[in-house]
Design a protein around this nucleic acid. Sequence first.
DNA 1: AATTAAATTTAGACAAATCTAAAAATTTGT
DNA 2: ACAAATTTTTAGATTTGTCTAAATTTAATT
Lengths: 220, 220
Amino acid sequence: MTHSEENYLKGIYHLSKGGSVAVATNAIASQMDTKPSSVTDMVKRLSEKGLVDYRKYQGVSLTESGSRQALKIVRKHRLWELFLVEKLDFKWDQVHEIAEQLEHIESEVLIDRLDALLNYPDFDPHGDPIPDKNGVFKTREKKLLSAMPVPSEGLFVGVKDSSATFLRFLDKHRIALGKKVSILEKEEFDHSMRIRLDGEAFRISHQIASNLYIKPNAVP
Amino acid sequence: MTHSEENYLKGIYHLSKGGSVAVATNAIASQMDTKPSSVTDMVKRLSEKGLVDYRKYQGVSLTESGSRQALKIVRKHRLWELFLVEKLDFKWDQVHEIAEQLEHIESEVLIDRLDALLNYPDFDPHGDPIPDKNGVFKTREKKLLSAMPVPSEGLFVGVKDSSATFLRFLDKHRIALGKKVSILEKEEFDHSMRIRLDGEAFRISHQIASNLYIKPNAVP
DNA sequence: AATTAAATTTAGACAAATCTAAAAATTTGT
DNA sequence: ACAAATTTTTAGATTTGTCTAAATTTAATT
């Protein structure tokens, strides 16, 4: 498989949320930052290789085999991201581009060793789950902060938007994975919220709240 | 720079022994395991980019700029090889192919961090010197075992042939970097030698002896 | 020095991955 | 339901990197 094929598989995987949902040519084009005509070409190749199901004008979905491949790439990407943060002291906003390259390195053993070096981690630096060798990942309950009831509590466990700008915004406000969050108040008008984090209460916009994943505290 | 361009630069670098020596199209072709016509094409591109000096039928040499680039790739390759051995428990015969891919990852910071993680090493797992950030490498006296006087002593510090088969042969005979070697006898007829290693004396062929680098012990 | 041999380059073709512009199919709006 | 808008595909071109086969240049030999 070429790098480009791998990238397409990964893109389709993300758009179809890891599943067999059909995705549109245009959607793939914008995800991959390329033209629809290029997508059509590539999708035909992937189809010939049995990695996607494709019917003209009807969208694309991953086959079993395509899905397995995509998961491997996702696994590699996330393991490398964690490696960069854990072993090379990169910040969570600096790892994506490099992992984007590293994910294409071909070597099963290499990834297994990396996995071991990192102690078989379940989540990457952005809180996204890392599939294991068999493509299985740990799930955990998580809700968008914007969807949490008032009042309630939970743990900040992941980001929906993992763009460098958003991540740096979170750094600036000391919002980091693993911190405890209390939801104090929700504003009907603009859907902004008041939350407590590190003992300090403050207000965040709906835009922000709808990009933070919270693991709700179990309520007995 | 594309991967292919980088590979050619590295190939030319190795053939010209790191210098400005002109190398032949055929030599590059066999080094790169490709056809002479492909070399001509690529060499023209590299020449247009100012990375090599090229005059038709007269061979190719690296420019200052080409040499700098080549050294960067060599540095990356050797740092990654050492990383694989030191941090991921690979054997010295398993790292080349993977490093061949990793050397193309683009990120200055990544390499600097890797360098730091490995404590700014001077030599890779095969005893080859690792250029520092500025392209400078530590030199040390070394001689082919076949060129050592009788009797003499030294340290096994590197291999000339670093093919997996040769490295595994050395493993089998417990010949490992850093070990002390005593040269006991040289056979005029077939140039084979008797040496002592780990307290045990044995005979090795000229073929082997001319692929092992020894750092001779200082004689007062 | 002329001829043969070897090395090198050119010419033309091909696959991968992309693009633009035009054509075709599907979806939407009234 | 049919025209308009949108989406998708096709056709044809481009770049990179490679190849084979033929032509050219340089080197070697007698």
